[in-house]
Amino acid sequence: MEILVCVKRVPDTAENEIGVNRDGTDIDRDDLVYSVNEWDNYAVEEAIQIRDKVGGNVTVVSIGEDDAEEVVRREMAMGADNGLLLSDGAFKGSDGRGLATILKAAVEKGKYDLILTGAQADDGAGQVGGMLAAMLDWPYASLVNLVEILDDKKIKVGREIAGGNQEMNEIDLPCVLSIQTGINEPRYVGIRGIRKVASVEIPVKGAADLGVAADAVGQGGAKVNRLDYFVPELGEGAEMLEGSTEEIIEKLVEILKAKGGIK
């Protein structure tokens, strides 16, 4: 099975508090630590497990600037066979449709049976996988938390729905799946793993290589554009307890008792 996994480099929210820069044009990017989008790690792990079961290759692809290479390399250290970086000045400012357009062009340059994306990334959109599937006219399943390969024509997938229930589906290949966290336990990548792929050449492709019309992507092709970033008004936010830890705890115990929070 030839599997393509789409991965995005994002600010790591476990390592950073995200704020807005001074003029509200962007998040504050000073001292940010970046990593692979949480969901994409699960997607790569799933792809590796499928390959190990039924054979084939896993290719990891990312659209981004030069520094996106580091996340592709990291996922190769996890065990992906090939990496691919899609990078071009013309890609900058792409909206979801633009990203899906670029990925579609890359997909058509290869021969894939299965494409995995994360369920969502840092801006909570959850859009690229579904758009890519529709552009390719391949079937799609979102929020997948179980994959079982039936044969080379179809697979079984579980979709996470409300209340922790799971919707089982049979889906024809080739198809696109968006992967939900918790589907597996992504393997740990140690220094040794990183070292092994440190010198692997990762091909970089731009708009011309892919045959993507530059005006279909990037800021110019985008139907959705961010105007600003802001921190929402606190409104009726919480009453913040202040003082020494001892004072805070004393107040909190009192409040909890009054509200029935201590039996």
Partner: peptide, 21 residues
């Protein structure tokens, strides 16, 4: 979970913009 499954692809099929969440 249903809207996320339906909507991104629908925007492509309708040739319309997509604005999530």
């Amino acid at each position: 979970h249903f809207g996320m499954d339906l909507a991104p692809g629908l925007s492509i099929k309708l040739n319309a913009a997509y604005l999530p969440d």
